[in-house]
Amino acid sequence: MRLVTVRLHSQATLAQAMRRLGLTEEEVDSGYGLVLIDPGQGLYGLRVAEEAARRIDPAAGGGPYSDPRIEPFGPPD
């Protein structure tokens, strides 16, 4: 899965994001859903299959962005 972004109006839904990006249900992490990143810019994030992320039209969405592992900083090994 890859993290991608899309610009939509406020109160947007995952279905609207999928339509904008041309994605099918199988290509989207529906458990993760559509996450509002920056309300000022109407910027949302979602997780999509790697192949689908490569296919997204840059005019419609941003990414793919890295989604690195995050780990606790302690106790130090």
Partner: peptide, 18 residues
């Protein structure tokens, strides 16, 4: 997928901040 017992993925932190 990609995580293990005591780590996460940055996308979860994005959702947490939202």
């Amino acid at each position: 997928p990609g995580g293990s017992a005591l780590d996460g993925l940055l996308s979860d932190a994005v959702a947490a901040f939202a």
